[in-house]
């Protein structure tokens, strides 16, 4: 369990932001942490959507229940947070 700073690139927002997460956090928890700094501040909420996370330039999203510490995400790696249709 350790602090992991990541870069949030949130869909619809204008700026990259620093977000601190825990290596034990699931990707849903990571998404919620990033959303805290964008949604309702400069990005309109989309309650019917799910926020998924992927690496910059990747197509595939990380599994929602995977722990970030197990995925090889590097400190200060830029991750994209995307609104998607609920499964």
């Amino acid at each position: 369990m350790s602090m992991l700073p990541i870069i949030s690139n949130f869909q619809g927002d204008f700026v990259l932001q620093l977000v601190a997460v825990d290596s034990e956090n699931t990707m849903d928890q990571v998404a919620a942490a990033a959303a805290h700094h964008s949604v309702g501040r400069r990005v309109a909420p989309q309650p019917d959507k799910v926020i998924r996370v992927r690496r910059q330039d990747a197509q595939a999203f990380f599994p929602q229940d995977a722990r970030i510490g197990d995925l090889g995400v590097q400190p200060m790696e830029c991750l994209e947070f995307i609104f998607t249709d609920a499964a």
Partner: peptide, 23 residues
């Protein structure tokens, strides 16, 4: 905000429906 290692200004671009922000 994440700050550019050259300009020392926030890394930012177009939001909304033209979203093109990236590192």
């Amino acid at each position: 905000p994440i700050v550019c290692n050259m300009s020392q200004l926030p890394i930012c671009a177009v939001p909304g429906n033209g979203w093109n922000v990236r590192d």
